[in-house]
Structure formats: C-alpha cells, structure tokens
Simulated assay, not measured.
Amino acid sequence: MPPSSREPLTREDLSPIPAEELITRRPPVFDDVAAERRHRKERLTAALRLFGRFGFEEGVAGHITARDPEFTDHFWVNPFAVSFKHIRVSDLLLVNTDGQVVRGRHPVNEAAFAIHSAIHHARPDVVAAAHSHSLYGKTLAATGQFLEPLTQDSCAFYQDHTRFEEFSGVVYDTDYGKRIAATLGANKAIILANHGLLTAGTSVDSAAWWFITMERSAQAQLIGKATGDTRPIDHENAKLTHDQIGTESLGWLMFQPLWDQITRSEPDLFD
C-alpha cells in the first residue's frame, strides 16, 4: 500500500484547496509557429490513431485534416492507403491549394482534397475537419434521419448539424466538395447521405471529438429506435444542453482523456 494511503487525516487537514492550485487543462497558446505546427501534427496523428482504435477505418477511406498555422491555405492530412493505426507524425502530408503534396512521401487521397479543401476555404474559423466511413454514421446517413436530441451527448449537435442529400459516387470533383461545404454552413457537423459523417472544429481536438461523440450518438439513436419508441429531449432543454456541452472549448476538453490514453499506450505516433 502506498505510504500516502496510510496517512491519517484530521479535521484540520480538510480545508479546501485553493482553486488556483488545482490542475486545470486549457488549450495551449503559441508564440512560435513551428511549435504550433508540431502541436497540430501531433494532435492530428493522435486523432487518426484513435479513429483506428475505435474501428472507424474502412480500407483507404477516411481522413482528418489540420490547417497549417503559417501557410493557412495549406493543410496536413493522413497519407493515402496507410492504416490509421500505424500513422506517425512523420507520415503526414502537407497539401497545397492545387491538391499537390509539398511535404510527405505518399500520395494524397483525392476525395480528402476535394472535400477538405472546400471546407477549409469556406470556413476560415475551421482548423480541422474529420470524416470516415464509420458503421453507425453511414447507417444513419442511409436512413434520411437527422441526429435527434435523444441523449445529453447528442444535444451537442442540436440545431448545429445538417444533411447533404446528394450522392453521386466518390467525391473527386472539387465542385461537389464546394456544395458539401456550402451545405455545412456554420454548423459543426454534416451527415452525407449514403456516405457518412463529417465534423469540423476550431482545433484538431474538437473536430475529432465531435466525430467520435456523433458516431456514438448515431449508434444510440439507431439502437433506441430499433428497440422501441424514443423520447426526445424537449426544445428548451436540448438548446440549453447544446449551449453547455456543444462549445468548442468543451469539445477540446473532452478530447484530452483520449489524448492521454493514446499517447501513453502508443508513443511511437510521435516519430
């Protein structure tokens, strides 16, 4: 037994710890662009590893992007045909506005460029966007449903996601990508009909978390409806809950335990 667990406590020991002495987690602030670039790349790699761990991988489909903090018309993205579970920081690609790889050793997924370039162009506030062919996301996408406020977690998307109803095969056309970006609008997420989910955020952390929790919320909705009648949260409380848990700061924070898990168990991602 650790010595600390054997130490007796007295009433005098039970005074509150000052708030300023508690460990709190906040997004880092950078004054060096190279450090910020490295940070975004590490978070991007960790997010990809987590997508692999959660089973969001479907062959070569799926991509997460992070805007470069200096060359903001360029973005970092996972390499084509490399497993999410194996990606390292050194594997990431930097892609320009023409879809050309300017850093990296692999080709870029053409669909990733067509979709993400349009989103990064249309939404200057977006640092990162995430998309994959996850099981429950693509199932929900095939039903014509929106994500309903059935659970506290799903309220993060209440009146903050939309649907893109067009489907015409793999997204290689940049004009198609522009239509997706236009439909996304100012929302944090979009359901791509017969395709899957896509989320966006002001950090890699939030964009990845929105995808993870949206996938799980889709799972809960599909299971709930298959089980029987569902009971949506009323508008007033759904909106209140959205304002509590649907903020970018909360999206960032919710990702931090997952960052801790993946970086401790798979430190080779930093290579």
Rank of each mutant, 00 (worst) to 15 (best):
K225Q: 14
P232S: 11
G185A: 13
G228H: 11
T202L: 02
A181Q: 05
G185M: 09
A200H: 05
Y158R: 06
I223N: 05
L197C: 04
G201K: 00
E165H: 14
I191S: 12
S117M: 11
H106K: 15
D234P: 01
T183G: 04
L150V: 07
T213F: 05
T227L: 12
G177E: 06
H106Q: 15
A122G: 09
Y176F: 10
G224V: 02
I233V: 08
R163C: 04
S132Q: 06
K188V: 06
D205W: 00
I115M: 15
T174I: 15
F146S: 14
G99I: 13
A181I: 06
G104N: 03
N237V: 02
I233Y: 04
Y172G: 03
H161S: 02
K178A: 13
A220K: 07
A156P: 00
H120P: 04
V126S: 06
D175G: 02
H131N: 03
L198V: 07
L140F: 11
F167A: 08
R123Y: 03
S206F: 01
L140D: 08
Q152S: 09
R103Y: 03
Q145F: 12
E215C: 06
D175S: 13
V126R: 13
D173Q: 10
T213V: 12
T174C: 09
E166W: 15
L184S: 07
D160L: 05
F157C: 13
R163W: 03
E148A: 14
L140T: 04
Q152L: 12
A208G: 07
L140C: 09
Y176P: 01
Y172P: 00
T227P: 00
I223F: 07
Y158G: 01
R179G: 10
A156C: 05
G196P: 03
A141M: 12
W209R: 06
Q145C: 09
G99Y: 12
E236K: 14
E165V: 08
D175F: 02
A207V: 01
A193W: 08
A141H: 11
D234F: 11
K188T: 05
E215T: 04
D125L: 01
G177N: 06
V204T: 09
A118K: 00
V170W: 04
N187S: 13
V170T: 11
D153G: 07
H131V: 01
I180G: 05
G99K: 15
K225G: 03
N187C: 14
G201T: 01
E166S: 15
L135D: 04
D153K: 10
D234S: 12
H195E: 10
